[in-house]
Computed example of a mutant assay.
Amino acid sequence: MTNLSFAEIRMNIGFLFTSILLFAATEQQCHAQFTLTGQAGNFLVPEARVIGDKQIAFGSSFHPKPEALLLYTDRQGSHEIYNYLTLGFLPFMDITINLASIIHAPIRSGIGDRSATVRFLLKKETNTFPAILLGTYAPLGTNEFVESNFLVATKNLAFAGKRLAVTGGFGTPWVIRTPLYEDFDSFTFFKKKTNYQVGLMMAARWELTEHLLVAAEYDGNKFNAGLMARFFKEKCFAKVYTFNFKTVGFGVSYSGVVR
């Protein structure tokens, strides 16, 4: 395996420095568990939750090559890194901006693929009914592989005296986007090349202790499972997980209320 290029090292240092500044500018607790691409959820399956008004979250995830999401025909490089920033604009809405890059990819590949997802909380959770959320992507990015449209419902239950979050939903393979490097007055309706957030999705997350959680999910294509650890009053989450019980990924996320 070759060494990281100077451009890759500079980009990772810049993201780390930005993360430290954002973390220092936040206060109060905010649930910080997010998916690989920065949506509220477990690993790949989102849940019916938004981070809330005036809240911010950011993180980074490592995704192994055998389960790669960036399926370019001329793909070069190895594993993937996903950096994301999630902003809460309203009590019922947030948006995630994602930057995905392939480790050791040629310099001509640029800084990575950009994408954005907007989520709307259609219904809050009650004692009887689950929360319901609609997620859709912004069709102006450069990463068609992680674009998705989905509808999910989440209910928090009690199991053995601990909180159990259960999620179920469905994602469609059909998307609308503008062709790359063309005017925004041209849009295309097509079927995605990947199974990312497509079909029936299910997930469950159980709090083992105050600081340790276990989660499992079916992302519409395979089963994933892992452990999460939370710190600083739920502002920081670290997680390690297995994709289809074959490869291992990991990630870290921070969140809080902007002062």
Results as ranks from 00 to 15, higher is better:
Val152Ser: 13
Asn195Met: 14
Ala238Phe: 12
Arg10Asp: 12
Leu140His: 02
Leu157Glu: 04
Glu80Met: 04
Tyr181Lys: 02
Met228His: 10
Leu21Glu: 06
Gly38Ile: 09
Ala48Met: 11
Leu227Arg: 10
Leu134Tyr: 09
Gly135Tyr: 09
Ala238Asn: 02
His79Thr: 12
Asn244Cys: 06
Glu207Tyr: 08
Pro91Asn: 10
Val146His: 14
Arg259Trp: 13
Ala48Asp: 02
Leu4Lys: 12
Val214Glu: 01
Phe92Glu: 13
Gly38Lys: 06
Val240Met: 06
Leu44Ala: 10
Ile107Thr: 15
Ser101Asp: 14
Thr188Ala: 09
Gln55Ala: 07
Asn195Lys: 14
Glu210Trp: 14
Leu22Tyr: 08
Ile97Asp: 08
Leu140Val: 15
Asn244Asp: 09
Phe250Arg: 01
Val118Asn: 13
Thr126Trp: 10
His31Tyr: 08
Arg49Glu: 09
Arg49Gln: 11
Ala158Val: 02
Thr136Leu: 08
Met202Pro: 03
Phe34Tyr: 11
Phe237Thr: 06
Val152Gln: 10
Tyr241Gln: 14
Lys192Tyr: 01
Leu4Ser: 10
Ile13Ala: 09
Phe250Pro: 04
Thr73Phe: 07
Phe187Leu: 05
Tyr196Gln: 05
Thr154Tyr: 01
Thr194Cys: 08
Glu125Asn: 13
Pro91Trp: 06
Phe223Ala: 03
Val258Phe: 14
His63Arg: 08
Asp113Trp: 15
Ser5Asp: 15
Thr128Leu: 09
Asn42Leu: 12
Thr136His: 11
Thr37Tyr: 14
Asn127Tyr: 14
Phe23Lys: 05
Asp94Asn: 08
Pro139Tyr: 00
Phe150Leu: 13
Cys236Leu: 12
Val240Cys: 11
Asn156Ser: 13
Phe34Arg: 11
Phe58Trp: 10
Glu27Leu: 09
Ala238Arg: 10
Ile107Gly: 03
Tyr72Ile: 03
Phe6Val: 09
Phe189Glu: 00
Ile107Pro: 00
Phe189Val: 01
Ser101His: 13
Lys239Pro: 11
Phe120Ile: 04
Lys193Pro: 01
Asp53Thr: 14
Thr242Met: 00
Leu99Glu: 15
Ala57Asp: 10
Gly199Leu: 15
Arg230Tyr: 00
Thr242Trp: 00
Leu4Met: 15
Gly112Met: 07
Ala48Gln: 12
Val257Asp: 04
Leu133Ser: 03
Gln39Trp: 07
Asn224Leu: 05
Ile103Val: 07
Pro46Ala: 01
Asn221Arg: 15
Thr37Ser: 13
Thr128Asp: 13
Ile102Gln: 10
Ala229Phe: 04
Thr247Cys: 01
Val198Met: 03
Ile56Asp: 02
Thr2Ser: 14
Leu121Ser: 02
Leu70Lys: 06
Leu21Gln: 03
His79Gln: 13
Thr117Ser: 08
Phe189Arg: 04
Asn83Cys: 10
Pro46His: 02
Thr247Pro: 03
Ile51Cys: 05
Gly199His: 11
Cys30Phe: 06
Ala138Arg: 00
Pro179His: 00
Gly220Ile: 07
Gln33Gly: 05
Ser5Leu: 12
